[in-house]
Design a protein around this nucleic acid. Structure first.
Lengths: 114, 114
DNA sequence: GCGATTGTTCGACAATCGGAGTACAGTAGG
DNA sequence: CCTACTGTACTCCGATTGTCGAACAATCGC
C-alpha cells in the first residue's frame, strides 16, 4: 500500500491549519510529537476509543496536508510527524501549536501553573 | 449591535486553527495584519469580490474563535486583529502563520527570493 | 425626512466533514 | 494452511460549512 504524500514544497499552510483545527487530529500530532514509535492502533489506544475507519479518515487528512508520513512496515503502518519538513517550511509553527495545545489543556484543567 | 467576543482565556487553539484553515479568512487576517484601519467593505474590496453576507459569516467565525474584534462605530464595523491576546496565549503562533502564508504565496508565484 | 451606505439576519443550497459498520487485503505466526 | 492482527476501502448518515440573494435595521449626509 503506497501512500501519496505531498512533497515538502507542496505543503500549504492553509491545509496544515485546517488539518490541525480538529481536536482528534491535534491530539494525534501531540502523541506523535511526544516521541516513541507509533502505529495506527497505538495512537488509537492512546487517544481512547474511536473506530478504526474513522481514524483512517484522519490519517488521510493529516497525510494529504503533509503533517504526517505513513510508512508501511510489515502489517503495520508506522506514523511519523513530518517535523523537519514543517519546520523548514514554517519555522516555529509546529512548536507554537504544540505549546498552545498544552497550554489550552492546562488552562482547561484549571491549572494555575502551566 | 453588540458582538460577543470570547475573553482571552476562552480562546482555544483548535478554534483559531480551524478559523485560519480557510483561504478567505487567512487572507483577511493578512490584510488586517498589514495595518491601517479596516471596516468590512474595505477588506471585502481588498480581497476582490465576495458577497457581503458571505463575509458576515467569516467575520463571525473569526470573531467567535477570538482572532478578530469587531467594533461598531457609527454605521461601520471596525475590524481589529487581536494580536495582543493571541500573542499572549500562543506566543509566536500568529507570526509563524503570517510568515508561512507569505512564504506560500511567494512559492506559488514561483519566486526564487522570498 | 429621504436616499445612500453599511452590515446583519434569514433562508436556501450544494459540498464537505466526522463518525461508524462492514467487508476486504496483506502479513505474521502457529 | 489457517487464524489472528493491522489497517484500508467502501458506503451510509447526520451535521456542519461555504456561498449566495433578499430583506431588514441602523446611521449618515443632505
Amino acid at each position: 500500500m503506497a501512500f501519496r504524500h505531498p512533497d515538502r514544497d507542496q505543503i500549504r499552510i492553509e491545509d496544515v491549519l485546517s488539518a490541525l483545527g480538529n481536536g482528534v487530529r491535534l491530539s494525534v500530532v501531540r502523541v506523535l510529537d511526544a516521541g516513541g514509535e507509533h502505529n495506527c492502533t497505538s495512537v488509537l489506544n492512546t487517544l481512547g476509543i474511536t473506530a478504526k475507519s474513522t481514524m483512517t479518515h484522519h490519517w488521510r487528512v493529516l497525510r494529504d496536508s503533509g503533517v504526517i508520513r505513513q510508512q508501511p512496515s510489515g502489517r503495520e503502518n508506522l506514523l511519523l510527524l513530518r517535523r523537519e519538513d514543517l519546520d523548514a517550511r514554517y519555522p516555529g509553527l509546529l512548536d507554537a501549536i504544540l505549546s498552545g495545545a498544552r497550554a489550552d489543556e492546562a488552562l482547561e484543567r484549571g491549572d494555575r501553573s502551566p
